[in-house]
Design a protein around this nucleic acid. Structure first.
Lengths: 190, 190
DNA sequence: GTCTATAATATGATAGAC
DNA sequence: GTCTATCATATTATAGAC
């Protein structure tokens, strides 16, 4: 695959991701995909022969990679811990458009049925695992024991996801921004 | 409306609520509603002439009333604060089936388009407002000032919603139960 | 790799009998 | 108040030209 082809592939996946974020699996339609990508239905099937499920799984893989690059990588760099957390927080603020974007991990499973649901749930569970482990690892570095560090990692994700839900529900992103700003203290157990 | 009619009405709304919780607005179909309620499509249109949107708004109103009865009422009783919070937490644990149920406020907006989305967003925003204010009021009673008490109320809802998202995403309800158990201390600013 | 055209099915919604 | 039968539309998916 050439560099140009990769970029196009990436743009298509980003467009699909936006549709899945806004509409969930059940609410996402091929009509919405064609509007978002500029590609007609047969072209989408050419790229994703198994249809919507394959699109969803490709989008999860893409989002996971972006999470690794933008959040997990900064967190696991060398150097002082708190600046690393702050870099990860800054990237998350961009990734979720300051709290105005729904999280794919929250929205995607909604409306998926039967085998589609099973496949999506598994992919999402793995993504949650990565996310939680990354924060737990930082909490451990900041002094928490094994059990406590896992809880802190889990609760960090709880706060991020919850603040995005509240932002969407109330139209107010204050809690999301507060959550990000508080992340270094929170992971330190303060 | 007789007492029996009210009960049937309630059972229909509960069935619709389960479908909306699991599938969002976009993923919820009349076929799913007929399976959940036992009523055929024309009977559903007889009860809700404006179709899916009217069903969704009726379900929100019903869920809001249940929230008032099960959570807000215990919180605003007279007597010691902490036991009141514990009663509200216990009721929420039941309301969300120990963390196995998706929150309607999270799932319902997913997949709604155009005017449907606007109407649903407004109804959900009001419900979030009630929820946040109730917790903020308790935080104020526990000593927080005006600004801080609102933040605590907001963050309490952030944690509850987030822990339900994480429970659905990971299949692990531990964070939800931890959130409920920690609620009295959290609202006290501890 | 993308398209026009089209088929098969699912979905939202209604008419009219009981 | 519920049903059978039906309709118009939307949706998933494919065939075949370029």
């Amino acid at each position: 695959m050439t560099e140009t082809e990769q970029k196009i592939e990436q743009q298509v996946l980003e467009a699909l991701a936006e549709v899945f974020q806004a509409h969930g699996f059940g609410g996402a339609t091929l009509t919405l995909f064609t509007k978002a990508t500029g590609l007609k239905r047969p072209s989408l099937y050419h790229r994703f022969p198994n249809g919507k499920l394959e699109m969803a799984l490709a989008v999860v893989a893409f989002a996971k990679q972006r999470l690794v690059d933008e959040v997990l990588a900064p967190l696991s760099e060398t150097g002082e811990v708190r600046p690393r957390i702050k870099r990860a927080a800054k990237n998350m603020e961009q990734l979720y458009d300051g709290g105005n974007d729904t999280c794919l991990m929250d929205a995607l499973p909604v409306g998926a049925k039967g085998d589609d649901r099973k496949a999506i749930d598994q992919a999402i569970a793995e993504m949650f695992g990565c996310f939680i482990d990354a924060f737990a690892s930082v909490a451990k570095e900041l002094g928490a024991n094994r059990k406590k560090s896992y809880q802190l990692g889990e609760d960090a994700v709880v706060r991020l996801e919850g603040s995005l839900v509240v932002a969407r529900g109330t139209g107010n992103t204050a809690a999301f921004k507060r959550t990000l700003a508080d992340l270094p203290n929170f992971l330190a157990g303060a």
